[in-house]
Design a binder for these strands. Structure first.
Lengths: 217, 217
DNA sequence: GTCACCGATCTTGTATACAAGAACCTATGT
DNA sequence: ACATAGGTTCTTGTATACAAGATCGGTGAC
């Protein structure tokens, strides 16, 4: 439990928007939600502002706040930026990463493999996230790391969705291995290219999903 | 004038923080500032939240908000991310940019040259910003464009500072020309590398400035 | 003399009250 | 019958009131 009501409320609302409970364009009623959370309008309005800055809702003055689900175009754009940010992490990490971190990456990927063998989708997802978290950290740039986390958080529901695609898990893992190899070789360009492709393919697969173009299975 | 008081206040405070009126670690007193702006605490608190999310202030629960000027390390990190983001713009723009936009870039750079000849530092700064704005737009990725603008805005005061260095203007302009050439050639890798170096050098020069290591003049 | 504990004061966080603008409904005129 | 004008109601934006935690100073004990 956070310290301020507005914090918990913002987080709860964020979850409700991300998981699609609130549809795109839907108006969030202050008084109604205030009753629902048993608080006054004040902390709700503070939460709204946070959501508005994250881009999850749009505040129209004197009109209210409306949830703003990213459309297909914006989603592809966001994945593209995610790919570039992670590629930057890889580029920097290639010259900065420690031996220990390389081992950690390999270990995380190993746990991914076990999760895949056990058909443990959630476990795979968790370890995959850990893999990427290590990469962010090893960029040696805390600001970049934070930016990556921020965008990753926003893309969470969509990334989860696309992992369901058959064959993606194995492919993803193979890509992880190639990435580790590039980092171990200390090749910034190759590492960046591989990570960029690894992340970008998620956006593309998602794009296909959304348009009903069935993947290969 | 914006629609909400909290908007104008947030913008004003942002300016005061960015231009150094508020020192690092200084506490922003709600009631005092409320009097100063002749408003109640409510819009001020809303403004504080926005600043906190931008990272300009830190909110410590039940303690207050404290301005958080980026230290040398964080600044270098931010410039590094800016370089990577702009490099991404260039990489994408290389295959997406229109002929018209290429001409616009050349024109903007030409105006830079004139400003330099006239010793018009502010003019140069303005046209330089326009040059980069075109680059963002030509990435063909509106989300990336927004992210670039956001970070650029935060780095504004520091970029301005380092442009004062003798010889930097001419060098910067030459880099612009090389960038346009790469884009015209449609070479993503080269365009990205050039933009990355072009932006990164700002961070490095700034780093030198801060450490009292005089530049070459 | 120093440290700790307790109370007074101040500050933040939340709730409520008030003001102004927007939406909606009705009624009237053409 | 439809459009428009006016008023009513609802909603947001801001101000104020209240509650709870934090800081600071004083006093007392060791």
């Amino acid at each position: 439990m956070e310290v301020k009501l507005s914090d918990t409320i913002a987080e709860t609302l964020e979850g409700l928007i991300l998981d699609g409970t609130f549809a795109d364009g839907e108006r969030l009623d202050e008084v109604q939600l205030a009753q629902r959370f048993a608080v006054s309008r004040t902390p709700l309005r503070e939460a709204f502002q946070r959501l508005a800055q994250s881009g999850l809702v749009q505040q129209i003055p004197r009109r209210g706040v409306f949830v703003r689900q990213p459309g297909p175009i914006e989603l592809v754009e966001m994945f593209e930026v995610m790919a570039e940010l992670e590629a930057a992490c890889a580029r920097l990490a290639a010259t900065r990463i420690t031996e220990d971190a390389l081992d950690e990456l390999a270990a995380a990927n190993e746990r991914c493999r076990r999760a895949m063998e056990n058909r443990d989708s959630d476990g795979y997802y968790r370890e995959n996230e850990r893999f990427h978290a290590i990469l962010y950290r090893q960029s040696g740039n805390r600001f970049l790391e934070k930016e990556c986390r921020r965008l990753q958080r926003r893309l969470t529901p969509f990334r989860r969705l696309q992992l369901r695609l058959r064959g993606r898990l194995a492919q993803s893992m193979a890509e992880h291995e190639a990435i580790v190899k590039s980092l171990r070789a200390g090749d910034p360009r190759q590492a960046a290219d591989m990570v960029r492709a690894h992340v970008a393919v998620q956006g593309e697969k998602f794009h296909n999903l959304r348009h009903g173009l069935a993947p290969s299975h």
